[in-house]
Design a protein around this nucleic acid. Structure first.
Lengths: 206, 206
DNA sequence: TCATGAAACGGACTCGCGTCCGCTTGATGT
DNA sequence: ACATCAAGCGGACGCGAGTCCGTTTCATGA
């Protein structure tokens, strides 16, 4: 039962990495991306990825830890892109706009992300919470919350803001309920706007 | 890949069920509950449950479909109890209180539920969304939302209200972040109160 | 250039999930 | 009481995930 999560980004080992290791990592990522695209993530076994990449199973697991880790690695490029938009892109997603607008722009961007990459995100599963990628999104949301509602419990609330964006839920809404993306987006904007504006009474003064 | 979900409650087949089948179902549920309690849900294999119950593996799977189905069946009694409280219990959880208070009481009750039964709920995983139990909670929340905000998209919003109560998230908050239940409860009340009160501007007028 | 050790490799292996199918058993009608 | 047969049973089986360990390959310093 592996639990030692080395939070090293599998694409950025940079410094000291043996040539064959780097070559193999690329081969695996390419093969995985390709197979995932043509047959669907959940229909591809780890053995197939290893075979298609021309490496042994051991290599695959040494590099990526498990299925979830492989999915994260494939996602990595996409997440970096989104991170970049958030940190250095144009408003309202990037810096410059007021917090509330930024949060809604973030929401839209995440829904898009989930819509396009849902399968991979589902393959990551709940280890996503222990990811540096998740931590980055969390940090961003917490910052926006603090700006708008200094009295609130930003760290926890940030997790709750991210909850409606869970891949499982999105899949449920689209596949089981057959809802169009636009309707889901509208509702999530509504919900997250509500969280952001603050609950009435009780624990948190307006 | 089984997808034919017969939404039959595994405890209430009532009418036509052969005596041996009923006996075996009980034996399995008892054995499962016992093993789960003493070793943790995720540490118990299906083979062990079957062996402990004194039935074959085939019987186990015929009855419960898969691991997730067994977990649901074990949860069933607890869910029924909560359902009862909601439908016929005292206010504010039961009928009688104003919608907002009922929703917050529901929130508290669900957090408690997740806190006590998190392991089992996690074993159910995302097939939970296709459960009649989930449908019942969803219906309840949607009704409360409609009462308080007739203009909102209650069916979708109800799913979003339930999202912060996801077992995965709760586990993350308690285990990874080490937060006490009380703090999580406070934040969730805040968030759900916000959703309930309605997002500021944008799609949904206050 | 070559010796050397650490890192990487790869495939055989174990284990758990879920399926399949030939056998058994209990409900039903006579 | 008995024949009939659908429903239930159970364990052998296949498959995919993840581990282990003997072998190979690269980087480094002499």
């Amino acid at each position: 039962m592996g639990s030692h999560f080395t939070p090293i980004n599998p694409l950025a080992r940079a410094a000291t990495e043996r040539a064959d290791a780097a070559r193999n990592r690329r081969k695996v990522l390419d093969a995985a991306e390709c197979l995932f695209a043509e047959r669907g993530v959940s229909e591809v076994s780890m053995d197939e990825v290893a075979a298609a990449a021309g490496v042994g199973k051991g290599t695959l697991y040494r590099r990526f830890g498990d299925r979830s880790g492989l999915a994260m690695a494939v996602l990595d490029a996409h997440d970096r892109l989104l991170q970049h938009e958030i940190l250095r892109g144009d408003p309202p997603l990037g810096p410059g706009a007021p917090p509330c607008e930024r949060l809604l722009a973030f929401t839209d961007a995440m829904i898009d992300h989930v819509d396009r990459l849902g399968e991979l995100l589902q393959a990551v599963g709940s280890s996503r919470y222990r990811t540096s990628v998740y931590a980055a999104y969390h940090l961003h949301v917490a910052m926006l919350l603090r700006q708008a509602r200094p009295e609130c419990d930003a760290p926890v609330l940030a997790d709750l803001v991210l909850a409606p964006l869970a891949p499982d839920l999105y899949r449920h809404l689209t596949e089981n309920r057959g809802l169009p993306k636009a309707q889901i987006t509208a509702a999530i904007r509504d919900a997250i706007g509500g969280i952001f504006a603050g609950g009435r009474g009780d624990g948190a003064p307006r």
